[in-house]
């Protein structure tokens, strides 16, 4: 491994962000190493999704630095980052409900020839999408819609994938299946940041995890270490095994 390989795919240093005059991130430090899955955990309303929006360029930080692949990208713009290879699977359904599965995938492709490759790869990864290629995306089940959102995000070979609440509203078995796909994607060299409220679903595949509380990362470390700290942190007690 070269020295270059140790360079993080995503790095947030002292990031502060606000909606209007209300600051929601009070100095977030977070590192996503290359080709790894990092889980960003925490209860509802602590700033996980805002952190993701800062990482993908939707929210410009008021202070601090966002580095993607070692480049300073504060204020670069979400569309430019997406074009460069930073892809987001948003919370809920990131699909166009009135378009078919094939049309949703075609939207993520640059031209007709590329569209054929995108379809082929998406159906190979998620055979169920292939069976429903001509079905409108709105009529898919929640899990299938998440598969479609993931397939679309992967259509352009991203280097960094940001996933928000993949498990929302899905059955546990389906969530497990989706996270197995996330692990496979990481093995292909994609760096992944997963925001998740239900920690135990993601810790099985995450290499590292960070726990957010009140707009800051309180603990971070290997998934195995942080698992023990979660209950205490969620219940508001102290005494954790994770590194501060």
């Amino acid at each position: 491994m070269t020295g270059d390989a140790a360079r993080p795919a995503l790095e947030l240093r002292g990031v502060r962000a606000a909606y209007g005059s209300i600051e929601v991130l009070h100095g977030v430090d977070l590192v996503v190493p290359p080709a790894s899955v990092v889980a960003l955990l925490g209860p509802n309303g602590v700033g996980k999704t805002t952190t993701l929006k800062v990482a993908c360029g939707l929210v410009t930080p008021t202070a601090g630095c966002v580095h993607v692949a070692g480049r300073h990208v504060n204020g670069a713009g979400a569309h430019r980052l997406a074009r460069a290879g930073v892809r987001t699977v948003p919370e809920g359904r990131g699909v166009f409900p009135n378009l078919t599965v094939a049309e949703n995938l075609a939207l993520a492709s640059a031209d007709r020839r590329h569209a054929a490759t995108v379809h082929e790869q998406a159906y190979a990864r998620f055979p169920r999408l292939g069976e429903r290629a001509r079905q409108s995306a709105g009529s898919l089940s929640g899990g299938e819609q998440q598969m479609l959102a993931l397939a679309r995000a992967l259509a352009t070979d991203p280097a960094l994938l940001l996933v928000d609440e993949l498990s929302m509203g899905l059955a546990p078995l389906l969530v497990e299946e989706l996270y197995e796909q996330v692990a496979t994607i990481a093995r292909e060299g994609v760096s992944i940041l997963v925001v998740e409220q239900f920690a135990h679903t993601v810790l099985g595949v995450a290499h590292h995890a960070a726990l957010m509380m009140n707009g800051r990362v309180q603990f971070s470390g290997p998934s195995a270490e942080i698992a023990g700290a979660l209950d205490a942190a969620y219940l508001g007690t102290t005494g954790t095994g994770a590194r501060p």
């Binding site: 290359p34 080709a35 504060n74 204020g75 670069a76 980052l81």
Partner: peptide, 20 residues
């Protein structure tokens, strides 16, 4: 992928950005 991403990011206008 990271090298390709870095290459793509090299031409991006960044460095502060305007908040709001």
């Amino acid at each position: 992928r990271l090298a390709l991403l870095e290459e793509a990011l090299a031409s991006l206008p960044a460095g502060g950005g305007a908040h709001g």
